[in-house]
Each structure stands twice: as C-alpha cells, then as structure tokens.
Design a protein around this nucleic acid. Sequence first.
DNA 1: TCCATCGTTCGAATTTTTTCGAACCTTTTA
DNA 2: TAAAAGGTTCGAAAAAATTCGAACGATGGA
Lengths: 110, 110
Amino acid sequence: MSSSPDLPHPERSEISLTTVLFALSDPERLAIARQLVDGPLDMAECHLSNPDVPKSTKSHLMKVLRTSGVVRNEANGRARRLSLRREDLDARFPGLLDSVLSADDGGQKP
Amino acid sequence: MSSSPDLPHPERSEISLTTVLFALSDPERLAIARQLVDGPLDMAECHLSNPDVPKSTKSHLMKVLRTSGVVRNEANGRARRLSLRREDLDARFPGLLDSVLSADDGGQKP
DNA sequence: TCCATCGTTCGAATTTTTTCGAACCTTTTA
DNA sequence: TAAAAGGTTCGAAAAAATTCGAACGATGGA
C-alpha cells in the first residue's frame, strides 16, 4: 500500500516569475487555474474546453502548472487533488495572481 | 522621404491576456519591459543580457513585445522609440503590469 | 550624392512545446 | 482476487518558437 506517487513541487523560494507567467500564458492552463480559485478540485472535476483531449495531454497541462508552482497536486484516494498555491504565489509575487485571475480576457489565442 | 515603416500594433481592446503573459514569460523580454518603466528608450539603449546577440534576434524579441501589445514601437529618426503601453495595459488588465514589473524575480529560467 | 547607421524582414536551421497512444501504478469496488 | 477508475510516465511525431545571416529600407551626416 505504498500510496500514490508524491510528485515534485518547487518550494516557495524556488518559484520563478517567468515560469509562472509561461504556465499561465496558455488559455487552457489559465482556465484550469481559474477553476481552482474557489477551492481544490479533483482532476476529474477540472474541465478542459475540449472534453475529448486524452488524459495524457491533460496530465501534461497539469504538470506544467505544478512544476511552475502555480498548482499543488496531491494524492487523494485514487484521484488527484489540485489546489492553487495562493499563499505561496501571493507571498512571492504580490498582486500577480489576483490581477491575472480577475482579468477579463477578451481576445483569445487560437 | 516616405518615412520609416509603421509597424502594426493591436488596439487596446484587442490585447489578449494570455498573449501578454507569454510575451513577458521570457526573461529577456521581461528585462526589456522593465527598462521601459521610467520612460521611452531608443532601441539601441535597450540592453540585452548578452550584448552579442544579433540585431535580427533583438528585433524579433521586440516584435513579440509589440504584437502582444506590451510595447509601442514608433519611428524616431533613423532609430526606433520603444515605450511601455502602460495606459492600455492598466485599463485592460488592472494591476497586472505593476505586479509583474515590481515582482522580485529570483529563480531564472536558464 | 554617397555612405554609414539603425532596424526590419525573410528563410532555413535549431530548439522547445505540445500532443497522443501505450504501458504502468495505485486505489476502490465487485 | 480480479477488474475498473483515475492518473502518471515514456517515447515518438507534430507544431510552434527561437536564432541567425543575408538582404533590404529609410534617415542623417559628410
């Protein structure tokens, strides 16, 4: 019962601004982050704009968000619990997350 | 004397959040934006971390910043005057530019 | 006028990201 | 105990970004 894999996360001090910006620069990843503002969600509850994308692709999007420090990904039964690393991000880059998440995106990247 | 090329710029309403985030997600481009906070600069006065990068590469970095709406690029004699589109960005994404530019970047992307 | 300066653009090569199927692992349920 | 559910990882293929030299254009000065 050696439990689900513990995935690597950067610690707060290791979170890089440009890496975070990159993670959020993709519409799909930004949309995921926005779904997490009201609290953690299991991965299956995070919806992509295209529901037919393979799970490996979805997993990769999550990986970019995790390794950048935007999202925490922990085992939760056989599921994965995703949460915004709000405290870490607010401490490291004050105001950034709020401005990004509350921004009204009009033009979309194709 | 048909004057230097007028390069295309997105209008305020066309500026896309994810595109702006992408433009700023590169350390070199972010550094350029930061050099413009205190006012416009001619291109030759914007320094890259590596002074030996070819001008075509530098021009391309500027293009990404311009087409995303982060920077304005206008003819100025035989030079190019670069300026931050602060008003447009503040209007479109309140707080974003301030938080990004004032953020203390620690970890760098290689 | 001629020429050096300051930048843009083009195309090709390289590098980085993204996408996806297949294989695998753990937990829950039958 | 077997099988299904929920996800990660790997490798290869496809797509997108970056880099750079060469060619070009406009401006300002000699």
